[in-house]
Simulated assay, not measured.
Amino acid sequence: MSIANIVHPEACGSAELPGRERQEQTTVWAYAIIDNGVDDLAADLTWMTGVGGAPVRVAACSGLSMLVSDVSETQFGEAALRRNLENLDWLDEVARAHHHVIDAAARLFPLLPTRLATVYSSDAAACAALDERRAMLRGALRRVDGRVEWGVKAYAVPESETAAPRHARDGFAAGRDAASPDEDGAQATRGGTGLAYLRRRRAQLAAGRESRVAAVDAARTLHGALAGQADGARLHPPQSPQLSGVRLPMLLNAAYLVPADGAADFNAAVAARAAAHPELRIEVTGPWPPYSFVGDDDDGC
């Protein structure tokens, strides 16, 4: 799972649930927003443990519910999270547990995943956050019902790695450069080796610019075609090589909302575009729960 969109937690409310006794200071870790109509199905997840090994439960609100766990404030409160999020080993373990709950639940009913490290002081605070955006969240739940997310990334492939470099297709070759000796052997009068180098270098730079422009156009075409086939699309900022693990420039980082039974058609469309655009290296991931389609503003709080 990619962790590029992790946000630091923000308390979305502070009211305490009346009558709820807390033996220790705890906070509520949120996994996903669900409709109240699936509470019975969600109750079957009580066997599952989530972040920190805590059992998963349902926090029922008015019209919507949330999958949550009670976790120690010492480890998962706001101050502790600010510190622990700097620990990559801790972060990886927590991210896996968070995704495990969401992935398992998404196989049973529609849900809207919350961002990693979304915490509330209590069930009442979580419900207050849901109440503020109830209409939008209900609409988003209807939109993702029966659909999954596919991720597509496209990178610019250097011209030297494509099947036919542009300068070769255009007939440019060292043997035809002005530096090549003519029939009289008058290389010096044709500009000499220095001028030949400059001409080759200029041609290489021009070919590189053309290659980059072609790759950008291809990525734009790819996104348009896939968005037209999907029920929703989101563009994310390109990732740095440190995050993506790929040294090539990332030109497209997108998510597409696709019917759960439409995986074959969607992947066939990606494959067809990849074959038509050797200037791109295309990666597909999924299917995922609809992480990118929580709301119009992609806000998962």
Results as ranks from 00 to 15, higher is better:
residue 286 G to R: 03
residue 77 G to C: 02
residue 96 R to P: 03
residue 132 E to N: 04
residue 134 R to E: 14
residue 255 A to L: 10
residue 167 H to K: 03
residue 201 R to Y: 14
residue 106 A to K: 00
residue 99 H to C: 09
residue 146 G to I: 09
residue 53 G to D: 10
residue 25 Q to P: 00
residue 63 G to M: 06
residue 239 Q to H: 03
residue 71 V to H: 02
residue 199 R to V: 15
residue 120 Y to I: 02
residue 77 G to E: 14
residue 238 P to L: 13
residue 291 Y to Q: 05
residue 73 E to Q: 04
residue 157 V to N: 03
residue 225 A to E: 15
residue 78 E to T: 11
residue 244 S to C: 06
residue 258 V to A: 05
residue 150 W to M: 08
residue 191 G to N: 11
residue 130 L to I: 07
residue 288 W to E: 10
residue 153 K to T: 08
residue 246 V to K: 00
residue 126 A to S: 08
residue 298 D to Q: 11
residue 92 D to K: 14
residue 94 V to H: 04
residue 155 Y to E: 01
residue 183 E to H: 04
residue 127 C to G: 12
residue 84 N to S: 09
residue 11 A to Q: 13
residue 48 M to C: 05
residue 277 H to K: 00
residue 58 V to Y: 01
residue 182 D to E: 07
residue 239 Q to P: 01
residue 65 S to M: 08
residue 229 Q to L: 15
residue 199 R to A: 14
residue 137 L to Q: 06
residue 28 V to D: 06
residue 22 R to T: 09
residue 251 L to N: 04
residue 31 Y to H: 05
residue 7 V to K: 13
residue 109 F to L: 07
residue 155 Y to G: 00
residue 85 L to D: 08
residue 219 A to V: 05
residue 97 A to L: 04
residue 133 R to T: 14
residue 196 A to W: 11
residue 235 L to K: 08
residue 20 R to Y: 11
residue 90 W to F: 12
residue 176 R to C: 12
residue 108 L to Q: 07
residue 254 A to I: 13
residue 301 C to T: 15
residue 214 A to L: 09
residue 49 T to H: 05
residue 20 R to L: 15
residue 142 R to G: 11
residue 266 F to N: 05
residue 228 G to P: 01
residue 6 I to Y: 14
residue 13 G to P: 04
residue 38 V to N: 07
residue 66 M to A: 10
residue 204 Q to I: 13
residue 220 R to K: 09
residue 270 V to N: 03
residue 65 S to T: 02
residue 180 S to P: 00
